[in-house]
């Protein structure tokens, strides 16, 4: 499936799940910041992705859970090197460059963009 086709499907699904307008769903938009997603929406999006694309998503596979609460991974409000390494392994669909430049814990949510979601789907479809 072409990336543009995946994006169109992801956009429609986000419009439905988050009650946003389709022109708000740009590749750069962050799910939690720009599109207003809450934690339960991540589950909703996860269910919708499974239905739309036919793959299975394990718990924590789409978005890391618990990393920001673990003192091994976050110290003094910043993601540690160990935390960054874990994120790279656990969520390879995220572009971590911005977080590496400024590892403030508040920036973790910013890496979860629409583009990252499309990459996630692309990778899942390739390995399916």
């Amino acid at each position: 499936m072409e990336r543009s086709e995946i994006f169109d499907k992801v956009r429609d699904l986000l419009v439905d799940a988050l009650a946003v307008d389709d022109d708000e769903v740009t590749p750069e938009a962050t799910l939690i910041g720009d599109l207003g997603a809450e934690s339960i929406d991540i589950l909703d999006i996860s269910f919708k992705l499974e239905q739309e694309f036919g793959f299975k998503i394990a718990q924590g596979e789409l978005f890391p859970e618990g990393v920001t609460k673990d003192p091994d991974y976050v110290q003094d409000g910043k993601v540690t090197d160990k935390g960054l390494e874990l994120l790279k392994q656990r969520v390879p669909h995220f572009n971590l460059a911005a977080l590496e430049a400024d590892p403030s814990v508040a920036n973790v949510a910013k890496i979860f963009t629409v583009d990252a979601l499309v990459t996630f789907c692309e990778q899942k479809l390739q390995t399916a």
Partner: peptide, 12 residues
């Protein structure tokens, strides 16, 4: 509707 199993919630 969407239901959560509270003890497995994503916020921990």
């Amino acid at each position: 509707l969407l239901f959560s199993h509270l003890d497995n919630n994503m916020s921990g």
